[in-house]
Every structure is written in structure tokens, then in C-alpha cells.
């Protein structure tokens, strides 16, 4: 029987209460959101916090809002809401692509965006999604808020920029014109972790070149959620199969997968290249179809 080591349980009903508890209880306290990453680790005794602060009553953190220049998502927004959100699907189709293949529908009823990012598992999908979209994270403490770009959010595997008396409260996704995104994942069966996954986001210029583009990978080692040389190769280039091939190769070079029960390092490197190509191809095709759709509407 797998049961967590003993701990004390606290429940916070607001962000200020949660942060005050965290400040009082210190480094041995952890927040529990959906619990579907943390509790399995506690059952295996890989995580042994002395205090758990349940933040499921922090209703102020459940939202997906459109602002003038960005979409803001509350950290407690559950996978199911991310999957079903028409607003997200319209601006960032990468979310629906990814959420359809994250865990399974029952787990998606509980797991949250903030929980996934804070778990910082290198095999977790939403970090790659948020990095591809150039997201930033709002981290709150008693002294106010700070905004950390996704590139600085992950300090290492299972480690984030969130300090012991801080809390991730919001994820911000910048709205930029002429862009789209896509996510491709290979998994052994429904609900399993990725063998490898790749997310891509591109923004195009008026004459059909790529103004900016990002690729994030999951399950191929640390520091792959945003591969800077990929971004450099994409900037200013015209989309083509040759470009996808070249960028796929760069992505594969920057991975360090390990051989495990899900596949050999060689197979995973192959997937990193192939899925990068597919994600870029889909993202670019989506920009083109949206632009054509807008022109048709304008003509009508």
C-alpha cells in the first residue's frame, strides 16, 4: 500500500492566506493544487513535505481572461478548462492539441496549469507549451508580485524560480498578430507520459516569412522547453520543408534523452526531430489558413 509520509494539512481560501501560511510554515511546506503530480511523488516518498497547504478553495485563481495584449490564466485553472476553452483554442491551438493528450479525462478534471508548471517535471507537457508561446509567470509574495519569463521559470528539473514564501498565481500569454501554434506528442498509451513531445509557435510577417518562432520539447532531458538556436534559425526565414528539416535537426542536437522503458535515446532523438518538423508544419499551415479565412471574410 502506497501512503504518503505523515504531514500536517492546512487549507487556504485566498491567495493572501496561502502566502501567509507558506511564509509562516517555511521551506518544509508545499502547496497542493490538483495533487496528481505531487501526491504520487509523496506516495513513493520522493517528496516528504511536513505541511501541505491545499489551495483548491482559492477560487480567485480559476480563470481564463482576454486582456488587450495578452491572455491571462489563473494558476488553478484545470486541464479540462484549458482543453475546453474556445478562447484559448482560437488564439493558441497548441493548448487544445496538448490537453487532448495530457493524462486522461479523469485526471484532467483535477490537474492544474500552475501545478504542472511548478512540478517542473522535464516530461511534463505544459512547460513546453508555455515556453513556445513566450509566456510569463506571475509570482506573488507578501511584498507584491514579480513577473518572470518562462525561460527563467525553470531552474532545473523539479526546481522553479518560485521561492519558499512565494506562490505562482497567473500565467500570461502575449497576443501577437499573424501567429499560430501546434503540439505533437508520441505516447505509448492514453494517459502515459510522453515518449517525446514537441510544441511550436510561429508569427509571420506580411510577406509570408517567419518573424519569430519558438519550439519547446518535453521528455528529452532538461532545458529543452525553449531552444534558442531554433529561434535564431526560424527568424526571418521563409517556411519550407528544407527549413523544417534544418530546424528539426537543430532541435534534436539540443536534446539529451536517456534510454528507458519508453524507448532508446536514439529513437527519442529521432522523434525530437520528426515532431519538431510536424509541429512547425502544422503551426505554419494554421497561420496560412487563418489569413486566407480572414481574406475570404473581408471579400464577402
Amino acid at each position: 500500500m502506497q501512503v504518503p509520509a505523515p504531514f500536517e494539512y492546512e487549507r487556504a481560501s485566498s491567495v493572501s492566506e496561502a502566502i501567509a501560511l507558506r511564509e509562516r510554515l517555511g521551506e518544509e511546506a508545499r502547496f497542493v493544487a490538483g495533487g496528481h503530480s505531487l501526491l504520487p511523488m509523496m506516495k513513493l516518498r520522493l517528496a516528504t513535505p511536513e505541511y501541505l497547504i491545499d489551495i483548491n478553495d482559492c477560487t480567485e485563481l480559476f480563470y481564463i481572461n482576454e486582456e488587450a495584449e495578452e491572455i491571462r490564466i489563473g494558476a488553478m485553472t484545470r486541464h479540462r478548462e484549458l482543453l475546453e476553452s474556445e478562447l484559448l483554442a482560437q488564439h493558441f491551438p497548441i493548448f487544445r492539441d496538448a490537453e487532448q493528450v495530457i493524462a486522461d479525462p479523469v485526471v484532467r478534471n483535477r490537474g492544474t496549469l500552475g501545478g504542472s508548471l511548478c512540478q517542473a517535471d522535464p516530461s511534463e507537457d505544459l512547460s513546453a507549451v508555455c515556453a513556445a508561446l513566450d509566456a510569463s509567470c506571475v509570482i506573488a509574495s507578501t511584498s507584491g508580485e514579480r513577473v518572470v519569463p518562462m525561460g527563467d521559470f525553470h531552474v532545473g528539473p523539479y526546481e522553479t524560480a518560485v521561492g519558499p514564501a512565494e506562490m505562482l498565481t497567473e500565467i500570461r500569454l502575449p497576443l501577437r498578430p499573424n501567429g499560430s501554434s501546434a503540439y505533437h506528442k508520441v505516447e505509448r498509451r492514453a494517459g502515459d507520459w510522453a515518449v517525446v513531445s514537441a510544441g511550436a509557435a510561429v508569427w509571420m510577417t506580411g510577406d509570408g516569412a517567419i518573424a519569430d518562432g519558438r519550439v519547446g520539447l518535453a521528455a528529452v532531458g532538461p532545458n529543452t522547453t525553449n531552444i534558442e538556436p531554433v529561434r535564431q534559425a526560424l527568424q526571418g526565414s521563409a517556411p519550407s520543408e528544407d527549413l523544417y528539416e534544418q530546424v528539426g535537426a537543430i532541435a534534436a542536437e539540443h536534446c539529451s534523452p536517456v534510454t528507458d522503458q519508453r524507448g532508446t535515446a536514439e529513437y527519442k532523438t529521432h522523434l525530437a526531430k520528426e515532431l519538431t518538423k510536424r509541429a512547425l508544419r502544422t503551426a505554419v499551415a494554421r497561420v496560412t489558413s487563418t489569413t486566407n479565412g480572414a481574406m475570404t471574410n473581408g471579400a464577402g
Partner: peptide, 27 residues
């Protein structure tokens, strides 16, 4: 399975299916 894979422990919490082996009674 005790690992939130098999789903035999699913119950409804406020009408939504949830795996009860990966949920604390306290929560």
C-alpha cells in the same frame, strides 16, 4: 494500481469523476 493509472477507484466528487487513490480525504 495505487498509481492513478487503472481508474477502478474512480468516484464522483461534486459530480465529476476523480481517481480517489490520488486524492486526500482531507481535500
Amino acid at each position: 494500481c495505487d498509481t492513478s493509472n487503472c481508474g477502478t477507484c474512480v468516484v464522483l466528487i461534486d459530480g465529476e469523476p476523480v481517481k480517489s487513490c490520488t486524492t486526500l480525504a482531507a481535500m
